[in-house]
Nucleic acid binder design. Sequence first.
DNA 1: CAGTGGTCTAGACCACTGG
DNA 2: CAGTGGTCTAGACCACTGC
Lengths: 247, 247
Amino acid sequence: MASPGGAPAFSPLYQQIKGLILNSLRAGEWKPGEGIPSEMDLAARFRVSQGTVRKAIDELAAENLLLRRQGKGTFVATHAEQQVQFRFLKLVPDSGTRGSEGPAQRDIIECRRTRASADVARVLALRAGDTVLQARRVLSFGGTPIILEDIWLPATIFKGLTAERLANYQGPMYALFETEFNVRMVRADEKIRAIPASDIHTSLLKVKKNTPLLSVERVAYTYRDEPMELRRGCYRTDTHYYHNALN
Amino acid sequence: MASPGGAPAFSPLYQQIKGLILNSLRAGEWKPGEGIPSEMDLAARFRVSQGTVRKAIDELAAENLLLRRQGKGTFVATHAEQQVQFRFLKLVPDSGTRGSEGPAQRDIIECRRTRASADVARVLALRAGDTVLQARRVLSFGGTPIILEDIWLPATIFKGLTAERLANYQGPMYALFETEFNVRMVRADEKIRAIPASDIHTSLLKVKKNTPLLSVERVAYTYRDEPMELRRGCYRTDTHYYHNALN
DNA sequence: CAGTGGTCTAGACCACTGG
DNA sequence: CAGTGGTCTAGACCACTGC
């Protein structure tokens, strides 16, 4: 039997087209920021009607993998766009709006090669002891340190990433990943907890010991749903809050 | 000029149809859980093609206002559905999955009429001093108290809501709001912070004083985008975490 | 089997962009 | 002005549900 569970395994044509477009994205046929062929061209290429291509692209656009611009074309989404600057950073100042404090000041504390601990390896689908890059940075808004982040990346893929390159790069870190390492983050999961400030936090975030901080553990995934980054952030929430919209 | 900004104010037909359907939902023409007319019927009623109605319904379904069921029809979404039980509660146990600890135990601590403070009034778009219902409850999972919630509701709309009715009702609180008060919550915003446990938390959540807790302040909105509920939750995050998917 | 939503097509026309 | 995505239509057929 083709479908052991008894399910017909029916797959609509537009889903198959969606899969083909996704494969091209994975293969890097079109890079982030570039335009993909027009709907008519893709329809001819896949031998289906424009409407079917359209429905496939609609879903990919809804997942933020593609970006439609009327009159111009359809483009591969990128983290370099201004409009989408805060898609992954949900921290908002109590007064004013995001960005009202000016651009964040980013201080790289360190960036070094190390061995993956058991839990880091598990999350990143590596073996314990595999080489990873670990970076630590502090984000300040309006001159006040608000976020301490520790970031783990597979060293085999982010070869050559240094504190200097992180410090010199203007723009979102994920945009750097796209241009320099051909890694596109498409979605992420966050686990949020409240934790007491430890000595690291007292020194880098200027808070008293045991002050409650928001612990945000993020795992970011690529086109292939591979976990590519582990990030542990500690947020001060006396002047900011984590915003979440439930729909 | 019809459009001062110079914008053409062009509105697609399907958006207008969407507005008409939304108005029917607001007016209560179809109640939560009930079916709405078939696509063909609606197409005839609005004098448009089925495809146009379809696109309108697609968007309403994407916003969780309607629920499509192939072969059966399209239904008004409700909080009584099992499948959508945890759409608003994002707390997950460290081990196991949601609901693996069995159903939550819900203890109503109190439910009383009171006057809205300035900040509660502002959030609920009331005047300071207007009457509100305030409820407090503790949610326990696997016998352990995990969540303390304070809930504020406009008294004019939730007339007759008592601790007994809250305690006796089986199922989600928002489902009770639908059937008893004709209030349907369609979306919400949450502001999340880390705060130290106070005396209330030590007694009701069995944690030590100053233990970091997750503070979750939720404002829930109706079909008309009116703020209808303010809820302040304090979550223990030693055995659970707040999960958020970034797409 | 009839009725529902879901898919696919083909064609016409509209709105927007840039040369 | 040509080319792009966006809307709208009409009709055919498929998948699923329940009687």
